[in-house]
Design a protein around this nucleic acid. Structure first.
Lengths: 242, 242
DNA sequence: ATAATAGTGTCTCTCAGACACTATTAA
DNA sequence: TTAATAGTGTCTGAGAGACACTATTAT
């Protein structure tokens, strides 16, 4: 394509670089964590050795769409195939990548980790690590990834106030107390049990699926998400006005 | 750049086309309207003669960022310099543009029209027209612009339920009854005057700026937006649940 | 029985909506 | 005074939070 002579002068414009980055969230040890990868140490690469969000160039021969590209990156880094994956926003300017004018479409994903996978590096992949969100935000990430991470965290925290998003961070079947715990982890504060349960059950996005035994005490009802393709929106915020 | 030999094999990848499209809303004759432009009749261009959203290629030598590019398109089409301009989302896949894999970052803008400008075409510009939103949605627009328009309308209607966005559709100073009328136009339903006024004044995003006389009846307090850089979010939806 | 956890009932407070009321202006 | 519009007060209902209560399980 670069060599093709077009009849349309626009097509001979210099084209920006196009990448996709994915902010992959999970809950590990009751902490919200995000997956970071290390940039290669090659000095010819931008930001060598720095931590970055997983992502990279769109491959026009492999990716049918931006969403496909994001799903591919996620699969390559984590093996997860059916996550919650939502477009966050795009950033594009002349300065964010030293190689030239570049645009990135950022996505954020919510996934559950098979037990023990947190420490297992994926064979052949560049070094990657789950980092607790507050720690990740203190790092100076490559490119404008600190800004993208901040936007993703803000969007997640904001949506958690009025949507069922945290359910996508749990392995099914899960219980309402587990779900409440996940909300509390993401929100960073406690919520009232009674109000919480009313809210979740009234929203009718869960379906019962047997009983889950805990280690102690009374067994709890197990639930799974009715429709994994969309999160539900509650009629009010958790704390109105704040 | 197309001819440059890079040390990084990634940079020799085929690059997608990058465009920006802007969904420009205004209220004309108490109807929500959107600006459409006609594609050139040149048969070598995609979708010749079809209506489309204003937009086009990012010019890496002129635009410092995607937002700048969107602001430039808006200025070129309407002359408006300081609108409300928000990124909507990006669409990118192999099929949306017959010229190749392309990505568009779509923005939506809320502007006020100087009286009478609705009919005045901008000199030298391609044919453009304000079209009432429901009519625009019935047209088969170029590219995937019908889908983008639908997303923009959905986002606007949704945000109107809990933000001060409609204030950006009015020329300052405006009155609370005018603002209420604008909310009703965008929402497509009536809202209660008392509740509406409480909501707006409690949110404290307006400041009084004298008195505005109407044609009949009692004069009304004039207001302007305190901070034009952001819309405020109300603690609740207009109609909870629905 | 006790500890631990799951799940429910009841009260209260806040706030949005309904709607009737008062206020100000021009003719 | 009347018509037209701006602006206010009061009641009610829905729903979230607080918190005490009951239920079920393992030891």
């Amino acid at each position: 394509m670069n060599k093709k002579i077009s009849t349309d002068p626009h097509l001979d414009f210099e084209r920006p670089l196009v990448t996709v980055d994915v902010v992959i969230f999970s809950v590990i040890d009751d902490k919200l964590a995000v997956l970071l990868v290390r940039r290669p140490d090659d000095e010819r690469e931008p930001f060598p050795g720095r931590w970055a969000l997983p992502g990279g160039f769109v491959d026009v021969n492999q990716d049918r769409s931006l969403q496909d590209c994001a799903a591919r990156k996620l699969r390559e880094k984590t093996g997860v195939k059916a996550p919650y994956l939502e477009q966050l926003a795009s950033w594009g300017d002349s300065g964010r990548d030293p190689r030239g004018w570049s645009v990135t479409s950022a996505y954020f994903a919510l996934i559950t980790l098979p037990v023990g996978q947190a420490e297992v590096p994926i064979a052949g992949a560049p070094e990657s690590q789950w980092v607790e969100v507050e720690e990740a935000r203190r790092k100076r990430l490559a490119f404008d990834h600190s800004q993208i991470l901040a936007a993703a965290v803000a969007r997640l925290r904001s949506k958690v106030e009025y949507t069922s998003l945290p359910a996508f961070l749990l392995t099914e079947p899960f219980t309402l107390p587990q779900l409440q715990q996940t909300y509390e982890v993401v929100l960073g504060r406690e919520v009232d049990k009674s109000a919480f349960r009313k809210r979740m059950l009234d929203a009718a996005f869960l379906e019962e699926v047997g009983v889950v035994d805990g280690v102690f005490g009374r067994a709890a009802t197990g639930y799974r998400i009715r429709d994994r393709d969309r999160a539900v929106t509650f009629p009010r915020m958790f704390k109105s006005g704040e």
